[in-house]
């Protein structure tokens, strides 16, 4: 057990090191920060204006502007992430396959599960470091609200973002393990994630029990729950299921790849 943990740690550290040495990772982080900053200012202005207008027109329906703003901002972040996460996950296995290092990992005393878990943890950690700086300017804005905001809601929203990212990255990792082309992995992951994003709409269209079941699979729906400060265990279970499914399929596909390769 200690050996497995030590192996996971070794691969985790190597992966993280890889991200911090990779120009692509910095580019993704840069783009993410740029877009996040832009939308942050934009939304902030829009909501300020909105609340001012509400005041002047004498609208008496109370608006909880900070919470609405948080929800909108996290929504935007999740959409940006939808585009960027497949790029983060595309190389997880495809690169290893291309460079032949998968053969090193597969002939080392490390299980497929440990490798997959370490890789997922590393890429989620990288995403978390991408989100971390945003918390600084959120703290500045939300710290100025009266009445003060409930920090638990803010943290829960970001936890939701991380869970969403972990689910997407886990599935992306599986797709990455199917091919040695990173581009192909990114495109397929994007397609799959987009489908899971909008599957709620598809489900509603279909209706009936199948439609219901489908819409329950939607990533967006469960993510929105969390950003509203609702801790729904079904949402947590759904994200956890996606993560475990991704890990399981990855471990299986690496095995299958070894069985059938010519």
């Amino acid at each position: 057990m200690r050996i497995i943990f030590s192996n996971i740690l070794a691969i985790y550290r190597r992966e993280l090191q890889g991200y911090f040495a990779s120009p692509l990772a910095y580019t993704i982080a840069g783009v993410f920060w740029l877009l996040a900053g832009f939308f942050f200012i934009n939304l902030l202005n829009a909501y300020n204006l909105g609340s001012l207008q509400a005041d002047t027109t004498g609208n008496t329906t109370p608006l909880d502007v900070p919470y609405l703003f948080l929800q909108a901002f996290l929504g935007v972040l999740s959409s940006v992430a939808l585009f960027l996460l497949p790029i983060l996950s595309m190389g997880l296995y495809a690169e290893e396959r291309k460079r032949g290092t998968l053969e090193l990992l597969a002939t080392s005393p490390v299980t497929n599960w440990a490798v997959a878990l370490a890789k997922l943890l590393a890429v989620v950690t990288f995403f978390a470091t991408m989100v971390l700086p945003l918390l600084v300017y959120e703290a500045i804005v939300f710290g100025a609200t009266t009445p003060p905001m409930n920090w638990n809601v803010i943290l829960l929203g970001h936890l939701g973002l991380l869970l969403l990212a972990a689910a997407v990255l886990s599935l992306g990792m599986f797709i990455s393990s199917l091919t040695d082309s990173t581009i192909l992995a990114a495109v397929f992951t994007f397609g799959l994630v987009l489908f899971l994003w909008i599957v709620e709409l598809v489900g509603q269209r279909l209706g009936g029990p199948i439609g219901n079941a489908l819409s329950h699979l939607s990533l967006l729906k469960h993510f929105n729950n969390l950003t509203q400060g609702i801790v729904d265990s079904s949402s947590l279970v759904l994200f956890a299921s996606y993560i475990v499914l991704g890990l399981f399929l990855t471990a299986q596909s690496v095995d299958a790849f070894r069985f059938q390769r010519s």
């Binding site: 090191q17 990779s22 460079r99 032949g100 290092t101 090193l104």
Partner: peptide, 8 residues
């Protein structure tokens, strides 16, 4: 082909 990580 030697299994190497170029960035290390």
């Amino acid at each position: 082909s030697p299994p190497l990580y170029p960035e290390m």
